[in-house]
């Protein structure tokens, strides 16, 4: 099988694999969770990304749809994480009142990191695989 390394499927697939490996490294080596269900989710989603990215890279059947699905999945994850962070900040704000500059800065950094880690790249992937009507 000959791979077209210039095709969007290969490029985004390879990036997906790289991101998946990064997430797996983070959640297995740097920051493994010891709570069973958190461990499942922190390994399941990178696993899906790894498999989907690999499939896209080798340009298997329906690779574009897989790419679109992965982008939607990770954008949804990003939104859920941002919602959870916002809820947590709102919760502590409700209990403690103003949280002070230090905690506010950390919260802002966490939200920005979430967007950078799981929000920016799926937008590009979504754009690349956005369904277009055939003329």
């Amino acid at each position: 099988m000959r791979l077209d390394v210039r095709s969007p499927c290969f490029i985004f697939g390879a990036l997906d694999v790289a991101f998946a490996l990064l997430y797996l490294f983070i959640f297995t080596v740097l920051m493994p969770s010891h709570e069973p269900w958190t461990r499942f989710f922190t390994l399941f989603f990178p696993g899906v990304l790894l498999a989907g990215g690999g499939w896209m890279a080798v340009q298997g059947p329906g690779a574009r749809r897989v790419g679109l699905g992965l982008a939607i999945l990770y954008l949804t994850l990003c939104l859920l994480l941002l919602a959870a962070l916002s809820y947590t900040i709102g919760m502590f704000h409700g209990i403690y009142g103003p949280l002070g500059t230090g905690i506010s800065v950390i919260s802002a950094i966490l939200m920005t990191m979430t967007v950078f880690l799981v929000g920016v790249w799926p937008v590009f992937q979504l754009r690349a695989f956005w369904p277009v009507k055939k003329p």
Binding site: A83, S86, T88, I89, G90, M91, G94, I95
Partner: peptide, 14 residues
């Protein structure tokens, strides 16, 4: 979504 989540967290704990 972020604003609504913040408001919900705040409302339930304030």
């Amino acid at each position: 979504l972020c604003l609504a989540s913040f408001a919900l967290g705040h409302r339930l704990h304030h």
